[in-house]
Design a protein around this nucleic acid. Structure first.
Length: 424
RNA sequence: GUGAGUGUGGCGCAAUUGGUUAGCGCACCAGAUUGUGAUUCUGGGGGUCGUGGGUUCAAGUCCCAUCACUCACCCCA
């Protein structure tokens, strides 16, 4: 093998593609059930869309190049900027709010490890033009419904929910001098020992008293506990929003799958309100999905301000989780009929095949004359439910000998009858 | 960017502290079975042991380098 697979990419042999299709089909089915409409965009965009006015450090983590026209181009590392561009381009002509989803192929230039590749797929669901917390609720209920479709139960996953707004207002209460330095530390709370957590908070510019209050705040497991920690009206308003959200989620019947988790911060700078992440119970792998509200992204990209909320769910971690729980389909290929010829009558094979396919049935057959035993074996491999012998001399006129590969029974019948049996 | 681990037919593995022709399972091909599949039996093809160098009478095995992959940290859209 002289040329090998590029680092961080995957081949999808048919058995892999079947699994991939299962994931995509389940995603798409759930999205449509919740009345999200599918959209797409280009797989590469102007680099500027991702760098924007913020730092150029992101360039190190994406695939970019200069095209033959001298343009700075980047393979898309995420879908949200493209979505924002779509929204901005249509100006005010889009009837809001609306709910869209997409399953983009994304690229990131970074070290590979478990759950992180350089090329992957990610379901994106977004609600554009609604500043109501019911939009968050719609997305979260959708995630629960979708994960249930995959066979996952509340015991398998949990959606941790927090609020950037609440964190922000609380840090204001604390009079933290540099909130942006604090966020990354909060994000790591679950991953590092408690004393180191406190030390890092101090390093982020917080005094001892502030650290104590923040630590107590972060330890809250319920809305009521948080209530006791906060004072300002702004904080109370942000908390009220969370409380409203949990109330709605309870009405939707997904309380078992959601939990207040103030350590969910999300690294992305454009989040402005509710944020959430989906984890396997036990946090043994990285987040299956994550998202939140980003009300100012369109504004930052040069459009007018439009309230947005959405999330992304990658295929890699999801497949890892499903595999771990034994929830990936193991079925092979299937076909309605496999046609066998005793005498190598290829014209007859194609003739019968055409009739079956015209009737909407799937069928396969040998592409060169072969011994009957070989053809039967091929029928088996193709996953055929029935074999039809196209030139058997034991069938009455107008009928064909057939064999049911599932139960081994055989007999003679007309094509019409055989077709009816596989099309309930 | 930092650190650790692993590289032996297509896949998964073995090869006694360096020793003779590198084995096994699965898969693949053929036959037993020239009008009937999943079992079984028999036979067969396929490996310059990641690559390059070194030590040695002798290297898959030890040493160095290099490449690739994996895992973790950083980061995480």
């Amino acid at each position: 093998m002289t040329v090998q697979l590029p680092k961080g990419t995957r081949d999808f042999y048919p058995e892999d593609q079947r699994i991939q299709n299962h994931i995509f089909d389940t995603w798409r089915k759930a999205c449509l059930r919740f009345a999200y409409e599918e959209y797409e965009g280009p797989m590469f965009e102007h680099l500027e869309l991702y760098t924007g006015k913020s730092g150029d450090e992101i360039v190190k983590q994406l695939y970019n190049f200069i095209d033959k026209g001298g343009r700075d181009i980047a393979l898309r590392p995420e879908m949200t900027p493209t979505l924002a561009r779509l929204v901005i381009q249509k100006g005010g002509t889009l009837k809001m709010p609306f709910k869209w989803f997409s399953i983009p192929r994304l690229f990131r230039y970074e070290r590979t490890q478990k759950g992180r590749l350089r090329e992957f797929f990610q379901l994106n669901m977004d609600i554009i033009g609604s500043d109501s917390v019911y939009a968050e609720a719609d997305l979260l209920v959708g995630i629960c419904s979708m994960l249930r479709d995959f066979g996952l139960k509340p015991a398998d996953f949990v959606i941790g929910i927090s609020s950037r707004k609440l964190l922000s207002t609380f840090l204001t209460e604390l009079k933290a001098t540099d909130p942006t330095a604090v966020y990354p530390v909060l994000d790591r709370r679950a991953k590092i020992p408690g004393d180191i957590f406190l030390a890092e908070l101090a390093a982020a510019g917080l005094a001892a008293e502030q650290v104590v209050r923040l630590d107590a705040f972060m330890a809250c497991k319920s809305i009521d506990e948080v209530k006791a920690c906060i004072q300002s009206q702004d904080s109370q308003a942000a908390l009220q929003e969370l409380e409203d959200l949990f109330t709605i989620l309870a009405h939707a019947g997904v309380s078992e799958s959601v939990a207040l988790d103030l350590a969910v911060v999300r690294g992305l700078a454009y989040y402005t309100g509710i944020v959430f992440e989906v984890f396997d119970r036990g946090h043994s792998m990285r987040a299956v999905a994550g998202g939140g509200r980003y009300d100012s992204l369109t504004e930052r990209l040069g459009g007018k301000k439009v309230p947005c909320v959405g999330f992304g769910m990658g295929d890699v971690v999801l497949a890892d989780l499903l595999s771990d729980r034994g929830l990936l389909p193991t079925t092979g290929p299937t076909v309605d009929f496999y046609l066998v010829t005793f005498a190598g009558n290829m014209p007859k094979l194609f003739e019968v095949a055409a009739s079956l396919r015209n009737a909407g049935c799937s069928c396969s057959h040998a592409l060169a004359p072969a011994k009957v035993g070989k053809q039967m074996e091929s029928a088996n491999i193709a996953g055929a439910s029935r074999v039809i012998f196209v030139d058997g001399d034991k069938a009455p006129p107008g009928e064909y000998e057939f064999k049911n590969l599932k139960d081994g029974t055989q007999g003679c019948s007309t094509l019409d009858q055989l077709i009816k049996e596989v099309q309930p």
